[in-house]
């Protein structure tokens, strides 16, 4: 296997990986559990699961766009915008379910969401650094 192909494979495994979100969330959930009880830990994990759900939705739409739209820019753009709207709606629905229906603690839920998003930022930053290194 050439160096370039090896590099691409490394990037692919990093992209598929979840970075340091799970250990960070578990650590924070333990902290919230000790400070505020198990409901707070569940709320924090729910916030992290929201980011995982929207990330999964994005990956699924990206694969669909690659499979169906191919090299047609307009069709690709349709999938991209549709994905953005779906992510917004899913996030709104999950926030409403968490705060309204399940009556979860707001602070740990928002903390879990923000921490998972920060972990995602870090993963994307790492990925773009790898892309820059490997061309």
């Amino acid at each position: 296997m050439s160096n370039a192909a090896h590099g691409q494979q490394g990037i692919g495994s990093r992209v598929r990986g979840v970075g340091w979100a799970p250990p960070l969330l578990l650590f924070s959930a333990t902290g919230f559990w000790l400070a505020m009880g198990w409901q707070a830990a569940v709320a924090l994990l729910f916030g992290g699961a929201m980011v995982a759900a929207t990330g999964g939705l994005e990956r699924w739409q990206r694969q669909r766009a690659a499979r169906i739209a191919g090299n047609l820019p307009a069709k690709n753009l349709r999938y991209l915008y549709r994905c953005a709207v779906e992510r917004l709606v899913v996030t709104l629905a999950l926030f409403a379910a968490g705060f309204g229906l399940m009556a979860l603690h707001p602070l740990p839920l928002l903390s879990g969401y923000t921490l998972a998003r920060l972990a995602m930022f870090h993963r994307f930053y790492q990925e773009s650094s790898l892309r820059r290194q490997h061309g």
């Binding site: 929207t54 990330g55 994005e58 991209l80 994905c83 953005a84 992510r87 917004l88 996030t91 709104l92 926030f95 839920l109 928002l110 969401y113 923000t114 998003r117 995602m120 930022f121 994307f124």
Partner: peptide, 14 residues
């Protein structure tokens, strides 16, 4: 796109 809509989503959560 995932990065662009992160901060607005947090605002929606707040």
């Amino acid at each position: 796109m995932g990065l662009v809509d992160a901060v607005p989503m947090i605002a929606v959560g707040l």
